[in-house]
């Protein structure tokens, strides 16, 4: 099942709505890495609230995705890892090293706002 990607200003928001196969995850990765350039996005948010399992493949794909997006000049935040999923990830040794995470969309937007602030975009002094 394809994951819809929404453009919200300078950010892309991908909300995973059901369990994803490995192929679906790889498609999401390719789509986001491509769209970031096409739409000149500064940040990407991947909402995984609906994921009930984050296994080694999903973790690796999300980690690689975040690293690729960074190489493209944007930042990624993974949002909504459920408590049981976090528990299971730690047990498995899956740490999403080097990847930003946030509790919810609001926190992620705040985080991206700070991370992607550009000096030339500051408000002009009145």
């Amino acid at each position: 099942m394809a994951v819809p990607i929404l453009k919200q200003g300078q950010y892309l928001i991908a909300t995973i709505q059901s369990a994803l196969s490995d192929v679906d995850l790889t498609h999401l990765q390719d789509a986001l890495v491509g769209q970031v350039g096409k739409l000149r996005s500064r940040g990407v948010i991947v909402d995984v609230t609906a994921l009930d399992v984050m296994d080694s493949y999903a973790s690796r794909t999300l980690r690689d995705l975040a690293h690729m997006i960074r190489l493209r000049g944007a930042e990624t935040v993974i949002v909504g890892i459920q408590p049981e999923v976090a528990f299971s990830m730690v047990q498995l040794g899956l740490t999403l090293e080097g990847v930003s995470t946030a509790l919810d969309l609001e926190e992620a937007l705040l985080h991206l706002g700070q991370k992607t602030k550009r000096p030339q975009q500051r408000d002009k002094p009145s």
Binding site: A19, L20, V53, E84, V85, F87, S88
Partner: peptide
């Protein structure tokens, strides 16, 4: 892979496993 873990989770749920155990089993 998705089908197997969903069926496993459903069976474990019927057997009365806790939600964090369900996630471990599905994973």
């Amino acid at each position: 892979i998705v089908i197997a873990r969903q069926k496993g989770r459903a069976l474990a749920e019927q057997l009365g496993f806790s939600s964090s155990q369900l996630t471990l089993i599905a994973t």
